[in-house]
């Protein structure tokens, strides 16, 4: 792998709204080429972290550096370097749009104002669709696809930005278990084949613990960050999850999590 450099660097950064602290004193660095999993219970600040990385939230205290740019000065062309898959459920299933039109939207931010997408952009969008195995569906209506297929299309839209980082907010929530695995396989493949830095936010520890290079455990602050084996220790996890946690002999972690959309 090429020489790794810093993609996102939080230093003692605090995020929230007046009177509400969502994330406190976060110090964390994500470097290029990593596959980082961000875990934590509901309301632990996972989505806040996601918005911060996208440059949509400024730190109330501390600093946040995204690429070579301080967060406050984050320019639009920097944002395009981060491909983002929002949580499922924020999408209107009946929106009249074809698969290819959806993926083409990934080009819009990169192109900037007043520039029309051309044949080169179309080729990039088609290549992105082919990466996720949805090329044959390019003329289908987005609303006619299954949940797993829609996730693939939205990943293709993120890829069409030709990003350095793929930021995925609960990509496997709300889809069946077989599809969850195929979406995760796809993400791993994109990490390996395209050398993308992956930041995957999830409440499902079992799903990702075997795949990530590093885990970040959040609950309003960073409780632990490091190799999965170092983070998934009973004494650390019980602080965060309390009684909802069972750890079996084989070090398999089961977290009872009844609520989605953390």
């Amino acid at each position: 792998m090429a020489h790794s450099h810093s993609i996102v660097r939080f230093e003692h950064a605090t995020f929230g709204f007046p009177g509400v602290v969502a994330l406190q004193d976060v110090t964390l660095e994500i470097t290029s080429g990593e596959f980082v999993g961000v875990i934590g219970p509901n309301g632990s600040g996972k989505t806040t972290l996601c918005k911060a990385i996208l440059g949509l939230m400024r730190p109330l205290a501390g600093t946040l550096q995204i690429f070579d740019c301080a967060c406050e000065k984050l320019q639009c062309h920097h944002r395009a370097k981060i491909g983002y898959l929002p949580q499922k459920g924020t999408i209107d299933r009946n929106f009249p749009i074809t698969v290819l039109e959806t993926v083409m939207m990934g080009r819009y931010g990169v192109l900037g104002l007043l520039k029309r997408p051309g044949p080169a952009d179309r080729d990039i969008a088609l290549a992105a669709l082919s990466h996720v195995g949805m090329l044959d569906h390019r003329h289908d209506a987005l609303g006619h696809l299954s949940g797993g297929q829609q996730q693939r299309v939205f990943i293709a839209r993120a890829l069409a930005q030709q990003p350095q980082v793929l930021l995925l907010d609960e990509p496997t929530t709300g889809i069946d278990i077989v599809t969850q695995h195929s979406v995760l396989d796809l993400i791993k493949r994109l990490h390996q084949d395209l050398g993308l830095t992956i930041v995957l936010i999830t409440h499902d520890i079992n799903m990702i613990r075997l795949h990530v290079d590093r885990l970040v455990l959040l609950k309003t602050k960073v409780y632990a960050a490091g190799l999965p084996a170092d983070v998934l220790k009973p004494d650390i996890l019980s602080q965060v999850y309390g009684k909802d946690l069972i750890i079996t002999d084989k070090d398999v972690v089961i977290v009872e999590d009844y609520h989605y959309h953390g």
Binding site: C76, P86, G109, L113, A158
Partner: peptide
């Protein structure tokens, strides 16, 4: 016509549009 691609994008998903670099 001039801003059609941005207007379509925010009609579809304004937060996503902002996150991907559209003003």
């Amino acid at each position: 016509v001039l801003f059609s691609k941005e207007l379509y994008f925010i009609a579809f998903d304004q937060e996503m549009a902002e996150a991907s670099g559209v003003p």
